[in-house]
Every structure is written in structure tokens, then in C-alpha cells.
């Protein structure tokens, strides 16, 4: 009754908080990042696994590769089509995808993911340039 103004103030605060993403993004175009493939990657056409799998599961695959190499010193990866790859982020993945900034970082930043790959691995492409 007498507290109506406080209740309305509370509702306004709640609505402001709830619609935070709406007004925070206002006037900002936030298109999804597009994957940029290098010429070499385009030429290869296929990654170690199908694209759909790679988009969702690449982190898991990299984790398994690391486990296989570091724990079991197994360095060969055979994909379902029978192709053989060397399990290596620096030498296999980054060989084709030498554009880390465009290929890795864009999506990771977009999805707010900070992978710890680069704590140890070097982004060689910068040196090459």
C-alpha cells in the first residue's frame, strides 16, 4: 500500500538486470565469427575427422592425442577412413591451420573460452611471418 514506490523501484531494478544482455548489446552487431581457412587447409579439404565432429569435439580429440603421446608415447592417429596422421598440435593441426588468430582465437574469444594449449605450445606462425 504505502510501499508501492519501493516495490516499483524493485521491479525496475529487476527488469534492468534481467534485460541486461538486451540493452548491453544494443546497437552492436555481433555476427558469429566465420572460420577462415588457409590455402593449405582448403586444398586438403578434409581435417583429421569430419568437420561436424571437429567443430564440437576438437578439444576432446586434442586431449586424447596429448594423453596418447605423453602417457603412452603413441604418436600415430588413424581416422575412421584409415588415413594416418601424426598426433601433434604444432606439427599437424597448425601445419594447415597456420592462422591461429583467425582460426582458433576468433571463436574462442566469441565463446569466452581460454584453452590452455598455448601455455606450452608456441604459435609458430608468428615467427614465420
Amino acid at each position: 500500500m504505502n510501499d508501492k514506490k519501493w516495490i516499483i523501484a524493485g521491479i525496475v531494478v529487476f527488469l534492468a538486470l534481467f534485460t541486461f544482455p538486451l540493452w548491453y548489446n544494443m546497437g552492436r552487431a555481433a555476427p558469429a565469427p566465420e572460420l577462415i581457412l588457409t590455402e593449405k587447409a582448403k586444398a586438403a579439404r578434409e581435417c583429421v575427422m569430419p568437420e561436424k565432429y571437429m567443430r564440437a569435439n576438437h578439444m576432446q580429440l586434442l586431449g586424447q592425442w596429448r594423453h596418447a603421446v605423453v602417457r603412452n608415447s603413441k604418436r600415430e592417429f588413424v581416422n575412421p577412413e584409415g588415413k594416418v596422421f601424426t598426433m601433434s598440435l604444432s606439427n599437424t593441426c597448425l601445419d594447415c591451420h597456420s592462422n591461429k588468430a583467425d582460426f582458433c582465437d576468433k571463436c574462442h574469444n566469441y565463446a569466452s573460452v581460454t584453452p590452455y594449449c598455448w601455455d606450452c605450445h608456441l604459435d609458430r606462425s608468428k615467427e614465420n611471418e
Partner: peptide, 25 residues
């Protein structure tokens, strides 16, 4: 099961920027 997070964010960002899109994948 893992999902393509970039595609998921494309959908959610479409919702909050009032330009809804339904990405594949």
C-alpha cells in the same frame, strides 16, 4: 555429447539482439 558452442551462441545472440537466426549444426 558436445555441441558447437559458436553455433549455439549465434542463436542466443540472435535472440538478444532481436535478429533471430537459427543456425545449423
Amino acid at each position: 555429447t558436445k555441441i558447437d558452442v559458436t553455433a549455439a551462441k549465434t542463436l542466443t545472440m540472435g535472440l538478444v539482439t532481436l535478429h533471430p537466426t537459427v543456425p545449423a549444426g
